[in-house]
Design a protein around this nucleic acid. Structure first.
Lengths: 121, 121, 121, 121
DNA sequence: GTGGTCTAGACCACT
DNA sequence: GTGGTCTAGACCACA
């Protein structure tokens, strides 16, 4: 578990958590069947509230990336590489649609967006 | 004034307001010196609270896009086209940094991002 | 009449007016008996509201710097040089007390204030 | 938290709040990491509205003096003594420019200002 | 319990 | 009639 939490970020902590973990899962960093640390342990290590971790784990379950076995813990789902890729593209596309809507509201063309993107990347 | 407010959006109303208006200003739709509607009138038309409009107008002033004269009203600042362009890119870049951070967390390369962008745009 | 009005200043216009004129009077730039321009003319020239000019003229009268002759106009009071000096010091001292209170709230010593003052002046 | 609010002052309440607190921070009275009282509690104690306190806290955040963590509270930023000094001088200088402009409108020289200052201080 | 947002209505200063 | 400020109370997201 390699997670970076920022208290001053505009994103809520539980979102930072599930975004980073879901990224690690679809990238294959966290393998199928990987046993996520217990909520209490994760909360202690990351110095966040148990409720916050619970909320993040719940979101991961809702996304179909992990499953919970009561009394045993949470595990990364079995996902084929193609399924992972599909989920990854799904998540990215969802975000990108919002981003593009924002760019377009300022009247940016695709070329301008790409140019700015190359500059900042 | 052509504003669309969504009560279901995750963005606060005042932010929707200043984002749309700032976009209209830097796109040149609202000309320099344009007299924004009085906050009370805007509040009535948009069916939101005066304070909500006020907060949006304040942010626009902070962004250097409008100025307010007590007792007279609020007006769009005098901005040269290059200044508008600069402010636009500034706002976009700020947002784009967050977007890119998200894409990178999924391990996307610049090329992949551009490809996806072209697809969705 | 040599007045500079700023719409974007945080000071209300009527205050800008009476502050500048009172300064000109106690400095001797506007001589005793000088006939201030009619309210309507001043309002037109300065591009402000008649009400605003009226409010400034009233404040000047309240300060004992001008007097009004109904139907004839407003005139600068007869003031001896020592009276002018006294009024000047009075106005400055009043302002300076507020300024000093502000500086002191930040814990500045007299020496620090003087140093900063020399730097900015 | 040692705040004095004057309802008769010409300054708005929220400005009195952030001026006094910012002074306390740059003077070092409120240490880095200090947990400001919750806005509701502060509002009750100071007998002002929540929104008024919120507005003051927002300005403090904008000045780079505090940061807020949703659900946790507001905290004084980590600032080195030199940073504090810099921020202090920055705030003072901003105010002092207005003060000096006023003095100069009366034709005062730097020496006269300093003399008066020493007298009143 | 904490901050984030919003409402509806009010009073005041300024133009 | 305009903006500037303030109130008292409410609901929601977050920890």
């Amino acid at each position: 578990m390699n997670i970076a939490i920022s208290n001053t970020s505009e994103k809520p902590i539980y979102q930072q958590l599930y975004e980073q973990i879901s990224a690690q899962i679809v990238r294959g960093e966290l393998e199928s069947g990987y046993n996520l640390p217990p909520i209490r342990q994760a909360a202690t290590e990351l110095r966040v509230s148990i409720i916050t971790v619970k909320k993040a784990w719940e979101e991961l379950e809702r996304l179909g990336l992990i499953y919970t076995v009561t009394g045993k813990g949470c595990f990364v789902n079995e996902l084929s590489p193609s399924e992972k890729l599909h989920k990854r593209n799904e998540m990215i596309a969802k975000q990108m649609q919002n981003d593009i809507a924002y760019y377009q509201s300022f009247g940016l063309t695709l070329e301008e967006v790409v140019d700015l993107l190359k500059e900042i990347y």
